[in-house]
Nucleic acid binder design. Sequence first.
DNA 1: TCGAACTTTCAAAATATTATGAAAGTTTAT
DNA 2: ATAAACTTTCATAATATTTTGAAAGTTCGA
Lengths: 168, 168
Amino acid sequence: MELPEARQKFIEAWGKLGSEWGINRTMAQVHALLLLTPDALTTEEIMEQLSISRGNANMTLRDLIGWGLIEKQHRPGERKEYFYADKDVWNIARQVAKERRKRELDPVIKILDELSKVKGEAKDPAFKTFNKTVTDINKLAKNVDKTFETMIKADESWFWGSILKIFK
Amino acid sequence: MELPEARQKFIEAWGKLGSEWGINRTMAQVHALLLLTPDALTTEEIMEQLSISRGNANMTLRDLIGWGLIEKQHRPGERKEYFYADKDVWNIARQVAKERRKRELDPVIKILDELSKVKGEAKDPAFKTFNKTVTDINKLAKNVDKTFETMIKADESWFWGSILKIFK
DNA sequence: TCGAACTTTCAAAATATTATGAAAGTTTAT
DNA sequence: ATAAACTTTCATAATATTTTGAAAGTTCGA
């Protein structure tokens, strides 16, 4: 396989994975493109390489910045904005964990905490089941939360070292 | 908060979380409803409680069975099928991990393995970047894969014991 | 073998998400 | 202050996903 075809495949695969995990396809593809590009690209170049519209490119780039996955760069004497993706996979994973925790996990934990407090008739099977389910899921969610927390705080060496040993 | 309202909230929250994680909202809601219900429910009851159509209920229930999250039950002397959800949160998490690994992670790893083999000009920055990105993501993906593998094989006590200690 | 009870299918409709591109907005050099 | 260079917005269009419900299919008891 030649490099251009391989690049294309990577962009497609990353896009598909993204869309399966709740990240929109184009966003994942733009990210993939930037991950494969040594230097920074302009909006124009991204639009052209992925055949997407200006508006879409703009929105997507803004979102990626919001996720902390890419950054704007400026070049002296130029008006254009350049976009550059951090190539450190561990940073990427950590960044995604951080954002998803904030956006999705935290709100759910808040609701589960509330629901854990609901009182009811101890003999009522409906209440007993409600209580068991909510309590157990709450525990699980808090563990996932702790895991994210640890990941977010940890540095790279921790990850490539300790995780590897634990799950060998 | 009273039980019926709390149940409703739980179903909504579970549905929202599901849709954020690539599981369709109705499927997550049906699952939530069954998680809150001590005994098994019929298609009819599910349709009514969630105000969804017969076709939708049927498809969703089939999918949930495919995910290994619920099971059909039959009662002696009755034609109707009843649906029952496993209430063990650890089983649920494990089952989801198993399915997503099979459906999403495995195919990506296959592609990454292929892309890792692509040869190129060692001096070419485009190739160097391609190579670093693909190799690193491949390593990460394989770690995630191993983690899933461990999770899937492990028993409940491992999870509630050892994971908790690691990420304290 | 019939028909009632129940389940499954699937084309069409409804909804939700994503993309477009022209127009408006902003910034900077002169 | 102006205009060129560039970025952002957003109503509309295109696409994708989900839901509906009536019709077809299946199963079982009599």
